[in-house]
Amino acid sequence: MKKSLIPIALACASISLLPSFSSAEDTLHWSYAGHEGPEYWGSLSPEFQTCKTGKNQSPIDIESAIESALPELTFLYTKAATEALNNGHTVQVNFPAGNTLVIEELTYELKQFHFHTPSENKLEGQSFPLEAHFVHADAEGNLAVVAQFFHEGDANVALTDLLKNVPDETNPTITISHALEAKTLLNTDNGYYRFSGSLTTPPCTEGVQWLVMKEPMTASAEQISQLGEAMHQPNSRPTQPLNDRVVLK
């Protein structure tokens, strides 16, 4: 896959879930329910108009993916996270510099990962109880998001320390007792799906490269419930029309 095949043009100021960047989210309130919920995002502010008018929006229902010789994803994660926060929309784990994703000659740095319950993306109509989004940015601010599904099953060891003291509105920023390595929450054994999409939160900026792992991981019912309670609500945007996009696998 050559660089020209990755249509990403996202300015750093538009990255809504990275706390080190400014965005319209800082001053404009939105939610996952009621009159500030997803169906109204595009009307809440001119800055959010793409949520309503965009043609390459995320999440999607991954159906009829086309077989393709996708390049290998090289995860060079060497720095563990020690900080987690609850930003009112999700539980988010921030990472220091030094963790990179390489796709052929393109290098993206891991900034953070966060959770959605239930999953935002679907697979052939199937929803999962939990999904994690690993947000990467290159030097120009272009984004690549790696998505990992979780189904209910055995407890996830990597989540155990995070959930011992999960951040909430009374303690929004915590120090993780044992440093968390991002690679322990990714299953890269069976390939991935790729498509062009958007941020799944306002301002819904397009031009984000999505890489969805095919193989789910497990988390216990208790772990999924604990994350859901910390976020106080389902925090998933409904799936969006695929339009003319192609999903590769």
Results as ranks from 00 to 15, higher is better:
K3Q: 15
K3V: 10
S4Q: 14
I6L: 14
P7T: 09
A11F: 13
C12E: 14
A13S: 13
I15F: 09
P19Q: 05
S20W: 09
F21L: 09
S23M: 01
T27K: 04
H35E: 14
Y40K: 09
G42Q: 10
P46Q: 06
E47S: 14
F48R: 04
F48Y: 15
T53R: 06
K55L: 15
Q57V: 07
Q57N: 12
S58L: 09
I60C: 09
E63D: 12
A65G: 06
A65I: 09
I66S: 12
E67A: 10
S68D: 14
S68N: 12
S68Y: 12
N87K: 10
G98Q: 08
N99P: 12
N99T: 10
V102E: 15
I103Y: 11
E105T: 11
L106H: 09
Q112T: 12
T117C: 05
N121V: 00
Q126K: 08
A139T: 10
E140V: 06
G141N: 03
L143V: 10
A144E: 00
V145M: 00
A147W: 01
E152K: 03
E152D: 02
A155C: 00
D161N: 07
L163V: 00
K164A: 04
P172V: 01
T173F: 03
I174S: 02
I176F: 04
S177T: 14
T184L: 12
T184D: 15
L185W: 04
N190D: 14
Y193L: 07
S196T: 08
G197T: 04
T201V: 14
P203S: 10
T205N: 12
T205P: 08
V212L: 13
E215D: 08
P216I: 03
M217A: 01
T218Q: 10
A219Q: 05
Q223R: 06
S225R: 08
Q226C: 08
L227H: 02
H232N: 11
Q233A: 13
N235E: 05
Q240Y: 02
V247G: 00
L248I: 04
